[in-house]
Nucleic acid binder design. Structure first.
Lengths: 157, 157
DNA sequence: ACTGAAAGACGTGCATA
DNA sequence: TATGCACGTCTTTCAGT
């Protein structure tokens, strides 16, 4: 994946929008000391370059009725079935994140469920029924202590 | 954590904003068939109720120079040191997510690094130097296959 | 809870330096 | 790459239902 040269203003723009995606461009412009049109152009370029993937409202899962968060490490019966297994995992709505990993297991999936019974059904009916999966190991998240975006400041390139 | 009664319009508003945090309220209003002022009021209430936690620009970590993603499962020497360990983990800028978990280890942390050398330094200097930690197990993410927000549609309450 | 109206702020495109 | 300007749209508030 290619990298893009980001100057101090680009980083500042991203820093603000990472914290608050709805921050007005004109407010960013005032903070950066350049015109709103310039901010607008820079954001469009960052978007076109693939630096910006989108924006999201962050909701509280518990408030939405999702009391259980878990990570499931999945071991494949046959590594050849990896891509098919991924396609099936995409169809499981409870899963919000999916990685190929090294270490214990081949795939790590993060998911949200309503309760433990729902988690059990998701693992047994949703995940383990997928062809090519050998076993799973579930790590229930007792508490999501914090979650944040990448800090783009701590590294100076 | 208390739940909040969300009707169909609240869900629709959240659904749109989860996909695109910058979607204009008036556009949401047109989709929902109610006035912009009503959307505005509902969003304010969802915010005050703690359903909405904020909004974020989603950036491509690789484009920012973070080529390595990993999950680290951490085992504590003494469970009493949990909260102090968490405070120290919060100070490690590479870590973006942190959970108390059941299973293999006590804490699961997700982090982004520039390269494998940076990952090594983060684990040895940043994480393992924290008091109270006994051991870590690192699962390097070879590929972040997908990442998405909770689908709030698949469950009808 | 929702509406409509009104004032000010904002996004966006364009011509230009 | 930045700017200023102009037009249309959006946010926000508030009185009224």
């Amino acid at each position: 994946m290619p990298k893009v040269a980001l100057d101090a203003i680009d980083r500042k723009i991203l820093k603000y929008l990472i914290k608050n995606a709805r921050m007005p461009f004109l407010e960013i412009a005032r903070e950066c000391g350049i015109s709103g049109a310039a901010i607008h152009q820079r954001i469009r370029k960052l978007d076109e370059a693939g630096v910006i993937l989108g924006s999201r409202l962050v909701v509280n899962p518990k408030m939405m009725g999702f009391d259980v968060c878990a990570h499931v490490s999945i071991t494949l019966r046959d590594p050849k079935l990896l891509s098919e297994a991924i396609e099936e995992l995409k169809k499981v709505p409870e899963i919000v994140e999916c990685h190929f990993i090294t270490g214990a297991g081949n795939i790590l999936a993060k998911l949200y469920c309503v309760d433990n019974e729902h988690l059990m059904r998701t693992i047994f009916d949703g995940i383990l029924h997928i062809q090519g999966l050998a076993s799973t190991e579930t790590m229930i998240s007792l508490q999501e202590v914090f979650q944040r975006e990448i800090n783009i400041d701590f590294i100076e390139e």
